[in-house]
Design a binder for these strands. Structure first.
Length: 878
RNA sequence: GGGAUCUUAGCUCAGCUGGUUUAGAGCACUACCUCGACAAGGUAGGGGUCGAGGGUUCGAAUCCCUCAGUUCCCACCA
């Protein structure tokens, strides 16, 4: 045999990927005669590099799309990238900093030029990496969220939603990232428990120098922005303070004491400093009580002139200095250690500053209605369904979406301001000018400096990848051919952490602009973790490089490795061992091929054993196909793979091939070989979605084929009727084989030593056609049948059939006795349990007949076995 | 604090509306095996009182309650 004993994936994988590409096998065009199957990729960040999360996610997508393609559907998987404004801008800024260039020294246009250069250089990397994985995307359709037409679509949507009254500009308390100098949505803020200090500060009463009110705060640097001190009106302790005023320490400003039940009496001192400009709750409180809003912070987190003191200092430095000064003046009553949850920027990790600013918002109340409804009524399925709860909770309590970001990289907000501060929404300066009635110069119009939130563009993804012209609010535009054919798409595979960021918003946009769901099924993958359960991340350095893994185990090995243990919605604790298992599986198949490809044929009479083996595997295969269909229909991808794995490794290799394998050097019957190749082809088909490369390779090795006869487009095998009887017989036969092998094993006998088997058939014995195969598989020189107990022979019992293996002088009586006694004990215990049930009148009266019958059968079987073991024990004494 | 989810062999998970031989799989583990497809392998084996405690029922891993823990989401009392 000239083929290597080990399969080497490297050349094979590159060869076939190129072949599929060259023959346009990933490309899809609308075909009215075929059912569409469409999926859009969750667009990775344009600056991204493939990580394990992408590997899992895209492997699942590729499995789904490859299966659909083989099922004869017009399968289209649209790839692309996301401009990811915050992440990309951060990368570009960092790159410029390395070159010694500050973003603040550049004009917007200069900066964008750098950004586009960066994008050109690194933007395609991740897509190239996906090719290594085997992703069968329609690369002709690759889309980018800042392609010119896509850009225009995003602006159209802004204009349209503004026209509909869903977008407004407002003063709102937003999460301000002083490092990124940008507002963040609530979702981009991580709350972390931080060890901080609670400062107890004395505020002197305005009309008295020696009477104080003590408040507790973690942010002494904001006292200069206080507008009031608040107490609970029910608080008996502070009755005397009602209507009075206090002086803010250090700046001596007089502020009122107000009353509100919002104040918790049992927390801190029961007195609250109210700082409307720098705290969400205080802002609300301030609105209610008409308090002055004093913003003492600059955009970068330093104190401004309104603070009066420590102007220009960073907020955290000012905190320390103020504490020190308070202490020096004896106004600091005490300091306690205190754990509190502090918001941090998801991107820069800076401590979030609640800040009032003018932002653009999308009203979510009306626009989200269909999106909530159609998930709750299962028009759109979330897989696993447990996410419905979370989804409902989020959608029912959704807040208006802050869609503006203080960045340059992104879709610039199409708002144009006149010098007097009024504004109009328009796509171009000219259009904007035409809407303005004031007498100003066109050059005086200034466009909003901000860009839109990234998700405000990616929420259009399932529509915009096909048609970017439908967002102008033009009811006559019904969309192009592609959109109408592929939309709604079928499945979306993504991570649960972006269920709201992205999935929910795509659903919202889908209903808003198409009146239809964007996809039917949302498969939520888990998070890939390392062995210690930590999320894989660049900073921890605990993520293997996917390309290294592919090199080491082959893409097929890594793909199956990822899927061996990843039920939907559950985290995947990744272990390289899984890839090794995948690689071993490739090798197993490779060697099965080596065996089959090495057989010479003869044309004599076909052996009966071959016919039995063929009939058995045919049924087993068909049974498995049905099982697979069930798994796939429920998106149980991991189970589908494991089912395929067992079909190939156990049923095909361990049983079928062993059954038909001729003695060494002898030929096989030509029909048996043909049938074996036919089986091989069918198992390659079902394995192809999981392991596309090795299966395509063997598909061509197995037979000479025309250049267009590729496995990737071969027809998915249909399940044919299953002969249940032969499956049962096979199962019984294999059980006997196992027992005989075990019998030898237990006695330290070589498998080469032939044995004699005497069978005493029991009541429901399956008289079957497998006897000669049993002989072949377990090396028996003779099988005979009897109706009476066999003296001086050891053996075993399956169901009610007894098997005897005569062994003259080779029996270790003591050991044998021990084994039988152990078995007897088990059976007696079992019998007792069953009898207890059967003598329970209530059970006999209420249990359904089929349950009763099984219990009776259990009893018979156990009694039979006990009898047999007792006999054997008796014989051993002799 | 509110909500959700989960807890089954060493690990990762199946086990649907309670009843099919005192719970299954893959991996890991143990023993034996270089037996001519494959040691990245073969053959066989050991391993779980189904998180804990109650309850319903003739019968509970499966239904109900309590508790403990896991993970996630939301809120964020200075």
């Amino acid at each position: 045999m000239s083929l290597a004993t080990k399969y080497s994936p490297a050349e094979v994988e590159d060869k076939w990927y190129r072949y599929w590409m060259d023959h346009g096998l990933f490309h899809s065009e609308p075909d009215p005669n075929k059912e569409p199957y469409c999926m859009v990729i969750p667009p990775p960040n344009v600056t991204g590099v493939l990580h394990m999360g992408h590997m899992l996610n895209n492997t699942i997508q590729d499995v789904l799309v490859r299966k659909a393609r083989m099922e004869g559907k017009e399968a289209c998987w649209v790839p692309g990238t996301d401009h990811a404004s915050i992440a990309t801008e951060a990368r570009v800024v960092a790159m410029l900093r390395e070159k010694g260039i500050k973003k603040s020294d550049l004009t917007r246009d200069e900066f964008l030029k750098y950004a586009w250069e960066w994008r050109k250089k690194y933007g395609g990397i991740i897509l190239e990496q996906l090719k290594k994985l085997g992703a069968s995307c329609d690369w002709d359709r690759t889309k980018f969220t800042m392609d010119p037409d896509y850009y225009e679509a995003v602006i159209d949507v802004f204009i349209d939603l503004h026209k509909k009254g869903h977008i407004y500009r407002g003063l709102r308390m937003v999460n301000w990232d002083p490092v990124g100098k940008t507002a963040l949505s609530d979702d981009e803020v991580n709350h972390k428990e931080v060890q901080s200090k609670l400062y107890y500060i004395n505020y002197a009463l305005a009309d008295s120098d020696n009477q104080f009110v003590t408040i507790a705060t973690v942010r002494p640097e904001t006292i200069m922005a206080d507008s009031a001190v608040c107490i609970n009106p029910k608080d008996e302790r502070f009755k005397h303070l009602k209507g009075k005023h206090v002086r803010i320490p250090l700046i001596d400003k007089i502020i009122p004491i107000i009353e509100d039940e919002y104040v918790a009496m049992d927390f801190g001192t029961g007195c609250l400093k109210v700082t409307p400009a720098h705290d969400m709750n205080d802002y609300e409180l301030g609105k209610k009580h008409n308090l002055e809003v004093i913003d003492i912070l600059n955009a970068d987190g330093t104190l401004n002139a309104k603070a009066q003191i420590f102007v220009g200092e960073d907020r955290f430095i000012a905190r320390k200095k103020i504490a020190k000064e308070l202490e020096a003046k004896g106004l600091l009553a005490k300091v306690e250690d205190y754990k509190s949850n502090v918001g941090h920027s998801e991107r820069t990790d800076a401590v979030i500053e609640p800040r009032l600013s003018l932002q653009w918002f999308l009203k979510m109340d009306v626009i989200t209605k269909p999106a909530l409804e159609n998930v709750m009524n299962d028009t759109i399925n979330l897989i696993p369904p447990k996410f419905k709860n979370t989804y409902h909770h989020w959608m029912a309590n959704v807040r208006d979406w802050c869609i503006s970001r203080q960045l340059w990289w992104g879709h610039r907000i199409p708002a144009w301001y006149a010098p007097d501060g009024t504004y109009v929404i328009a796509k171009t300066r000219e259009e904007a000018y035409s809407q303005i009635s004031n007498h100003i110069l066109i050059e005086d119009l200034k466009q909003d400096e901000d860009v839109l939130d990234t998700w405000f563009s990616s929420w259009l993804w399932p529509m915009a990848v096909f048609d970017t012209t439908i967002f102008k609010g033009d009811a006559n535009n019904k969309g192009n051919k592609d959109l109408n054919y592929y939309y709604p798409t079928n499945d979306l595979v993504t991570a649960p952490e972006i269920l709201f960021f992205w999935v929910a918003r795509m659903i919202i946009a889908g209903y808003e602009y198409r009146g239809k769901m964007p996809f039917k099924n949302v498969y939520l993958t888990g998070i890939v973790r390392d062995k210690q359960g930590r999320k894989m991340s660049k900073s921890l350095g605990n993520s293997p490089d996917p390309l290294d893994l592919i090199e080491k185990y082959g893409a097929d090995g890594v793909r199956s490795g990822m899927l061996f243990s990843s039920p939907a919605g559950n985290d995947l604790p990744f272990d390289e061992k899984l890839c090794e298992q995948g690689r071993n599986f490739s090798n197993k198949i490779w060697n099965a091929f080596r065996l089959v490809s090495g057989w010479e044929t003869h044309e004599g009479k076909i052996q009966d054993t071959d016919l039995v083996a063929i009939a058995w595997f045919e049924s087993k295969l068909n049974q498995t196909l049905t099982e697979l269909e069930d798994h796939f229909s429920k998106f149980r991808i991991s189970d589908a793979l494991l089912t395929t794995y067992k079909l190939i490794w156990d049923d095909f290799c361990a049983w079928y091939l062993e059954m038909v394998k001729p003695e060494f050097g002898k030929p096989i019957h030509k029909d048996t070989l043909l049938k074996s190749i036919d089986f091989f082809e069918r198992i390659l088909k079902v394995l192809h979605p999981f392991m596309p490369f090795i299966t395509e390779e063997l598909w061509h090795e197995l037979k000479k084929r025309a250049s267009n006869d590729c496995l990737i487009v071969a027809a998915w095998p249909k399940a044919k009727p299953v002969d249940e009887k032969i499956i049962k017989e096979g199962g019984f036969a294999f059980e006997i084989v196992g027992e005989i092998r075990n019998f030898r094993n237990g006695k330290g006998m070589s498998p080469k030593e032939p044995l004699t088997l005497i069978v005493k058939p029991g009541e429901q014995n399956l008289i079957n056609s497998f006897w000669p195969l049993i002989g072949k598989l377990s090396n028996l020189k003779d099988i005979s049948f009897t109706t009476s107990p066999v003296a001086s022979a050891t053996g075993f019992v399956i169901k009610t059939t007894e098997f005897f293996v005569p062994l003259e002088g080779k029996v270790d009586v003591a050991k044998e006795r021990e084994a039988i006694l152990k078995e007897l004990e088990y059976q007696r215990g079992f019998l007792a349990k069953v009898e207890k049930k059967l003598t329970n009148e209530k059970f006999v009266n209420s249990a359904p007949p089929h349950v009763l019958e099984t219990e009776r059968k259990k009893k018979e079987d156990a009694e039979m076995k006990i009898k047999s073991f007792e006999e054997a024990l008796g014989k051993l004494k002799e």
